[in-house]
Structure formats: C-alpha cells, structure tokens
C-alpha cells in the first residue's frame, strides 16, 4: 500500500506566543510537528505494519522543517519529501499549500493519504479536503477510527462529539482527529536511523508550478493576540439587587439587547 502523510511544522501553541511587526515572533518559539499530524503519522505506521507498503511524509515548508520531517522518519515513516517554498512564496495560504501538494501527488500511485484534521496555528482544516478535491478522490475528515479490508474502508468520524460510521474505498484521503490513536515516541534506533532514510528536497521549479498558479486566494489583514482575560466581577448585596445589577450590566457593558 502506498501511504502518504501530509505534515506541517508549526509553533507550539502551549508555549508563549508573541507578535511583533504584525507577525508571530519565531525567535524563542518552540516548533513541533502539528499535533494532529502526529496522529496521522501514527495511523500510517499502524496501517503499514498491518497491511505492508511504504509511508512517504510530505511537508510544504522551509529548510527548518527538516527537523520535524526527520522526527516523522524517526517515528517510523520510510521516506520523506520536503517541498521548500522559502524562496518562492511570501504569503501562501491553504489554497497554495493544497495546490503544491496535489501537484506533487497527481502522478503518484496513491492508496491512502493521511493528514491532520487542522493545523493548530492557522486552524483552517482546509488543506486535506482541498488536496482530495484536486486529486479527485474521496475524503473523510476528523476520523477517530480507520479499518481497511482490501480496498474497502470503514471509518468512524467524529461529528461534534457524536460518531458517524462511513464506508468508502481506496484511494482515500482522511484527516485525523484526537482519539484516533496514541502517537508513539520516536525510538532511539529510529532516531539514529532517521538521517539515513531518503529525504527528497524539492522546490517549485521541480514541480512545474509557476508562482502565479499558487498565488494565495486570501489576504491577511491583521494578526493580533486575543484580549487578556480580565478579572470577573463578583456582585454583592441582596439577591434582588444583585439580579437588577446583573441585568443592568448585561445591557450597558455586555451590550445585550
């Protein structure tokens, strides 16, 4: 089985994030594999171990992404492709990324593509579905279970806390939701072997893409941090007075009509 995993390097949103000059400060930020992509990698490894085949991890990013790509190889992926767009693209969006990935994948023998449900930085959840559309294959998002029998696939999908069972077939793209599996730590032998596994580094030129083919469809107007959470108010006095005060505050401060 030919398995592909779409993987993004992102900053760790559990660490402190700062903004300067309208962009997120990369100095001092910790970078990680997008956590949802870790589920995708783990699932790919489990599918390969059960059904045989080969896992290729693909990442659109920059030179720095090699660290995360190597980590995926250390976890157990067989080879990797890093499409370095650093010199060609200044402002890409989900359209850009999906177009590049699809261009790379279009002439490959694809059985299964796994991606994260969302990237925790942009949080759009678009790249997976867009790639599937461009490749004209079915896709199922936010999956929590994957069963493959020949070319028949049964998927459990998380729909806002409920489960939906979907039957479909390969080739297929799925996006991973939390709960799909428990991603493994890279093993020491995996880490030591990661450097020797094949990693292809490509640029746009290698894909026959022009910059205008992948120009972003969206524009970022402004990036800002959420407002600081302010201390709550504790009302005091008789209950009746508190209720009156609450209604007044809801009108005047919270602007509830």
């Amino acid at each position: 089985m030919n398995i592909f995993v779409l993987m993004k390097r992102t900053f760790d949103t559990e660490e402190k994030i700062t903004i300067s000059g309208g962009i997120i400060n990369e100095d001092g930020a910790e970078f990680i594999i997008n956590p949802y992509d870790e589920y995708a990698i783990e699932e790919a490894i489990q599918v390969r171990d059960a059904h045989g085949g080969e896992i290729t991890v693909i990442s659109v990013g920059n030179e720095e992404s090699e660290k995360q790509v190597r980590t995926a190889l250390a976890m157990g992926a067989d080879k990797a492709v890093l499409i370095n767009t650093e010199d060609d693209i200044e402002n890409g969006d989900q359209f850009t990324t999906a177009k590049i990935l699809a261009e790379y994948l279009k002439d490959k023998e694809v059985d299964l593509i796994l991606a994260g449900n969302v990237a925790i930085d942009g949080g759009s959840g678009q790249v997976g579905p867009r790639v599937a559309e461009l490749l004209n294959i079915p896709y199922v998002t936010t999956i929590t279970k994957l069963e493959i029998d020949g070319s028949n696939v049964t998927v459990v999908r998380d729909v806002e806390g409920d489960s939906e069972i979907i039957e479909t077939s390969l080739p297929l793209l799925v996006t991973a939701q939390q709960g799909l599996n428990e991603p493994r730590y890279p093993s020491l032998p995996g880490i030591m072997k990661a450097k020797k596994k094949p990693l292809d580094e490509l640029e746009l030129d290698d894909l026959d893409l022009e910059e205008e083919d992948i120009e972003a469809k969206t524009k970022t107007i402004e990036i800002y941090l959420p407002p600081k959470k302010e201390a709550g108010k504790v009302l005091e006095g008789e209950i009746a007075d508190q209720v009156k005060e609450l209604v007044r505050l809801l009108h005047t401060e919270a602007k509830v009509d």
Binding site: R70, T71, L188, I191, K195
Partner: peptide
C-alpha cells in the same frame, strides 16, 4: 547534532 537534538526533544517530552 540532529540526533542529539531529537533525543533531547523526545526524552524531554517522555
């Protein structure tokens, strides 16, 4: 080195 860095990240998380 790349290996030392990956070992550091892995074992810290673990």
């Amino acid at each position: 080195t790349a290996e030392q860095e990956m070992i550091r990240r892995t074992i810290r998380e673990f």
